[in-house]
Structures are given as structure tokens and as C-alpha cells.
Amino acid sequence: MKWGKMNIKIELKNIFLSYDHTVIFEDFSMQLDDNKFYTLLGPSGCGKTTILNLIAGFIKPDAGQILIDGIDVTNIEPNKRLVNTVFQDYALFPHLNVYDNVAFSLSLQKISKIEKKKRVMDALNFVNLGEYIYRDIAELSGGQKQRVAIARAIINQPKVLLLDEPLSALDLKLRTEMQYELKKLQKELAITFVFVTHDQEEALGMSDYIYVLNNGQVMQKGNPIDIYDEPKNRFVADFIGESNIISAKYLGDYQVKINNDIYKCVDGNFNQGTLVDVVIRPEDLKIVTHKTKLKVQIITRLFKGMHYEIVGQDISGEKWLIHSIKNVMPGEEVFLDFDPEDIHLMSTNV
């Protein structure tokens, strides 16, 4: 890890947490850098929201330490922590209007009315809701509620903003729009964002850094490109994007045996004869007219707009997912080709 000590914003050290006799984290640690957009990605139940709750202080670990800015906050109440949260269902106060919702944290402090109004207006303008200050919460659309929730969370200039699946309740178009806005917001505020999602597309699009989680453990961490191109194991490859995962054997000397055929590859960090999992992304499989080692019969074909999603089956019964703009018919037999660099080898352990 290249991070200097000074840059670490949040640190979770050896966290142990159990709930109702179920262990959620066993010796879990992570370090989050300053001014970065982090995403905690994983299926439901992987512990991603629990990590947010630990940082926010809603949950206390059974053992371990949580540090913010190098200060141990493990036993500090949530209202004394310099982090703020945007909740999945917004959790706006229904009895207060937009202005009072955003002003809530300021109204708990001794701040003059003029100053308060200025800061509320700044926050609302920041999220493009300047005209809605006196609206009732019930009158707002989902996207507007989302913005109010963000304005309310950033008004106190937190050092860290925690976002718990904030886009999941929005429709696709608005979600895409908000992804750009959140990314922009993080750049403008220049603080650490910790974004929780189960949507790999959101994660890949927005993050500087992704933690892929499963069962309370970090499966892989890294920037989106590394995670997509070089998944460490079957779980990550399966969870991030679509992929063909095939059991294979590394023969040494940059050669891998897949279904009795030998292919060249560029990964070589394995011992000769090791059993490996091979990942080939569906968009890397090309339907070609010349004869290759891999012949498949098309089983299904689904139009996806950008491309066709095609499933083909080879002689050994292995199914291959292909993304292609070529229109092939079910029943047709075609040859597939791919380049050595499209083959990614993963250890079968983990």
C-alpha cells in the first residue's frame, strides 16, 4: 500500500462484530484515504451497510478500533462524529419542510439566523434545489428527496460522507444522472465518499477505489479497471460484469489447457500443472468465419440494444456467453476466437 500515514482518513482495525450469534466480521480491517471516492460493493448480507453503520457510529463493534483522522472514535456517539450519512430511503424528517430538513444540524448549534439561511441556501443551490426551500417533503419527487438528503448531509461540512445505496430507489435515467452528479460533488467537496452499492455498474462508473465484499470479507480491492480486468477469484469475476468462468489447467510457459485445447495466455504467475479458473469476458469473444479451436452451437440469442447476448454450447457441453453485434440464429454453428490477453487466470483458492 502506497498511502502515507498522513492521508488515512478512516481506519477500521481488527473489527469483530456479531449479531444474534452470527459473526458478521471477524478481524476485519480497512483503510480509507482522504479525498477519494470509495465504493463498498457486494451482494446483500455481505456487510457493506454494516461498515457504514460502524463508521457513522450507529453500531458499535464487539472488538476492534475505528479511527477517523487518526482519532479513536470507537466509543464516540454518532452525534459527535464528523461524518454524515445519506440514507437509502433518504430518511427525511416528514414534519419539516425542505429548508428545515437541511437546516436541522445547524439548528442544533448556536448559529445566527442570517448565517444559517446563507448556508442552507448554499447547500440547496449546490444540489440545484434553490427554488424548493419551502416545499413539503411529501411534495417532492424521489430525485428531489435524494438531493435534499445530500444537502442535509453536506451542510455541516463533514470530513466523510457515507452513502448507503442512495440511488437504488431512483429510476434508471435519474440514477445515471445522479451518478455523474455524485462524482462531481465529491470532486467539488474534496472529501472522502464511502458509497455502498450492490450495483457493479454504479461502482465501476463512479469510484476511485472499490472494495468487493462477501460474507464480511474483502474479496478484492483496487481501482475499477483492475477489478474488472483482473478479478482475483471466481466470486469477483462473477459479481463484476458478466463473464465466462471455466476450470482449466496451467501448463507453464504461458500456456493454459481449456477443455482439452491449449491456448496461449499472458498470465504466468502459477506453478506448472496448477488448476486455475479462467475468465473470458463475453465482449472479448469474437464470432469469426475461419476455423478455430472453439466451435459452439448457438442456443439462445437476446437483443440487448447495444449488442446481442448470445449463449453457445461447445462439444464438451460448456456454455459460453457472447456479446456480439453479429446476428446469428439459434441452432447455427459458429467459431469463436479470442486473444491471449483476453484470457485471465485466477487461483481456484478463496
Binding site: 457513522a56 457510529g57 450507529f58 456517539e77 454518532p78 452525534n79 459527535k80 461524518v83 454524515n84 450519512t85 440514507f87 430518511a91 427525511l92 424528517f93 436541522f104 444540524s105 442544533l108 448549534q109 442535509r152 448531509a153 455541516n156
Partner: peptide
């Protein structure tokens, strides 16, 4: 949680 998060006792 939201209220506590925003600083309420």
C-alpha cells in the same frame, strides 16, 4: 439515525 447523524442528542 439520521437525526443523531446530524448531531442531535
Amino acid at each position: 439515525y439520521a437525526a443523531k447523524d446530524l448531531g442531535a442528542s
